[in-house]
């Protein structure tokens, strides 16, 4: 079940990245191309086989997981900046790219690196699943490391959710409103991610479901808005509409 989710998410992300190549070549919103490529890489590193391959090449110390965290941070930052600009939310933009936003990101990145170095990370393990069980101390360190990794996406989501929810209700082209709704769903899932520590083990299957819902909803939301531009470009409103017969 989870494998299906992983591979389908991977195919969606990579297809979007490929479809975005012509625009990237023309120089149109290259960050969108970067987002799709980085999301593809992030999904790849979440799947067992590619993770094992990459990590063994990096020395089997799970540095691939650390790289994965940074890929997620950069992807979320780029997507968040784009969404804040697009939906003209200057407050969200300041909270993401202003001193506060940069400070939050730097702090979380530092915490991620420090916790990773403190923990015993020897021996490749996808999603670090095998590491917390080694010792109570390691369990704690890896727990905080994972929490830090979810904190930044949740922070960005909290900043942007009001803007995307508002856009759903505004009179905008249908594809843009659907896109805004999907982005809102994705942000909501990212915020839900903060609740992972309190989800009981019996509901453990929810964790990947929430994660992949977030990725799929965000990518589909961005794609929807982009497709809307291609299909629905409208003429500028003019007086002619009131006089033409």
């Amino acid at each position: 079940m989870i494998e299906i989710l992983q591979w389908s998410t991977l195919s969606v992300c990579s297809a979007l990245a490929v479809a975005r190549i012509p625009s990237a070549v023309r120089g149109r919103n290259r960050s969108l191309f970067a987002i799709f490529v980085l999301a593809t890489l992030a999904i790849l590193l979440s799947i067992d086989e590619p993770y094992m391959a990459v990590d063994s090449w990096l020395g089997s110390e799970n540095y691939a997981n650390l790289i994965l965290r940074f890929i997620i941070y950069v992807t979320v930052f780029l997507a968040g900046r784009g969404v804040a600009k697009a939906f003209d939310d200057s407050r969200a933009l300041r909270r993401l790219t202003g001193p506060v936003g940069v400070g939050v990101l730097a702090l979380i990145m530092l915490a991620t690196v420090v916790l990773f170095l403190l923990a015993d990370t020897a021996g490749s393990s996808t999603g670090l699943a095998a590491l917390p069980g080694r010792s109570p101390e390691n369990g704690l360190l890896i727990g905080f490391y994972a929490a830090a990794g979810r904190l930044y996406p949740a922070y960005v989501a909290v900043c942007l959710l009001p803007a995307t929810l508002t856009a759903v209700t505004q009179s905008l082209p249908g594809a843009v409103r659907v896109g805004a709704a999907l982005l809102s769903l994705g942000f909501f899932a990212l915020i839900l991610g903060m609740l992972f520590p309190v989800i009981p083990d019996s509901l453990g299957f929810l964790q990947p479901v929430i994660n992949y819902t977030a990725v799929l909803a965000l990518m589909a939301g961005l794609a929807c808005i982009w497709i809307g531009r291609v299909l629905l470009r409208r003429a500028k409103p003019s007086l002619r509409a009131f006089t033409e017969k």
């Binding site: 919103n29 697009a86 003209d88 009179s171 982009w226 409208r234 003019s238």
Partner: peptide, 24 residues
């Protein structure tokens, strides 16, 4: 009345353009 309608349409149009300029 036409001015009001047009202003509203222009605002919607500008908002849409801004979205597509950044995410299109």
């Amino acid at each position: 009345a036409i001015g009001r309608t047009l202003r509203r349409q222009e605002q919607d149009h500008e908002r849409t353009e801004k979205i597509w300029e950044n995410l299109g």
